[in-house]
């Protein structure tokens, strides 16, 4: 019997990511990692991409990981994990190892997933390895000090898309990576957010239970890069979802399903205003950027409603 997704039950389980790691106060990444690992009752092997999570949890001679863990490089968490998963299958097939219900999970940020790692990820999805890839999407290269990525929202300030006098923030809209992954036709794809932990954990269970590759894109607030107080992490997650900037949905065996529809779809300003990275957008001359961002959120939301049969 799988552990019930109730706080009381989950709190009895041993944390697989030990406390004492060096990630920032208020960082969503360890919250997400703990939720993911608590959702899985079976043995897990983790591969992580270079990034905050790797740097913050494994400064030699310390490790916060109580499970087998490997970091190889930035762009290859997917291919590295595919090697582990394949070795497992090979050894079991040859009778060199006892079969166990082992789960293989990759963690990578948006830089390692949307940008530099997309090729390795796509290859793994096409080849059909049985593994779960979690992207913790904090919408910029945070580990190197807040540079724009393919996941950075339109208009956002980063250190390589500064709010300049001529170019006020990132001039491009973000890549819709979840849809790109879904286009591979793999058994399970989802978007999730740590403020709705039960939804996230159920998705993780579906992901590791899938007969093939699974991918979950999780919005992961970074208060250093987003510029908000450290105690509003989950509030930012909620606002992203309630403005439909970050819809919660899943694609199970190619069936698109909306998991959450806000009672009242909040205007995008609600998500932008508390974050310093969008502060310049509220100057009079930049208000059109907010309008364009709202229009893009609406376009994607409408498209999603159609795809999920909710329109």
């Amino acid at each position: 019997m799988a552990t019930a997704l109730k706080l009381k039950e989950l709190s009895k389980k041993e944390e697989r990511l030990a406390p004492g790691h060096r990630l920032c106060a208020g960082c969503a990444a360890p919250i997400i990692v703990r939720q993911v690992l608590l959702a899985i009752d079976e043995p897990v092997i983790v591969a992580a991409a270079t990034g905050c999570l790797e740097v913050g949890t494994t400064i030699y001679p310390y490790t916060a990981w109580r499970i087998p863990w490997i970091h190889n490089a930035f762009e290859n968490a997917a291919s590295t994990l595919s090697g582990i998963e394949t070795m497992y299958r090979s050894l079991v097939k040859q009778g060199k190892m006892k079969e166990r219900d082992m789960k293989f999970v990759a963690f990578a940020g948006d830089g390692g997933t949307y940008d530099i790692g997309i090729q390795a990820l796509s290859g793994v999805l096409e080849r059909g390895h049985r593994l779960l890839y979690i992207c913790y999407d904090n919408q910029a290269y945070m580990n190197t000090g807040i540079q724009r990525s393919g996941a950075t929202p339109y208009g956002a300030w980063t250190t390589t898309s500064p709010a300049g006098k001529v170019i006020p923030g990132k001039p491009q809209h973000r890549k819709d990576l979840t849809a790109i992954v879904a286009a591979h036709g793999i058994p399970y794809v989802a978007q999730a957010s740590p403020h709705r932990f039960r939804d996230l954990m159920q998705k993780v269970r579906k992901g590791v239970g899938a007969d093939g590759p699974a991918f979950i894109n999780v919005l992961s607030s970074c208060n250093r890069g987003w510029r908000h107080p450290t105690d509003t992490t989950l509030e930012m997650s909620r606002l992203a979802v309630d403005t439909c900037f970050w819809p919660l949905y899943e694609v199970e065996k190619r069936e698109w399903k909306l998991n959450y529809r806000p009672k009242e779809k909040l205007p995008i300003e609600e998500f932008l205003r508390p974050q310093g990275r969008f502060r310049h957008l509220f100057q009079e001359e930049n208000k059109h950027i907010i309008e364009e961002l709202q229009a893009e959120v609406d376009r994607r939301w409408e498209a999603l409603l159609k795809r999920t049969g909710e329109a």
Binding site: I70, S79, G83
Partner: peptide, 19 residues
């Protein structure tokens, strides 16, 4: 694999896995 970078990356994962 889809590239040599992934070839060596997968080899590293597989070798560390124990074979």
């Amino acid at each position: 694999v889809e590239s040599e970078h992934s070839a060596m990356s997968a080899c590293i994962g597989a070798s560390a896995a124990g074979g």
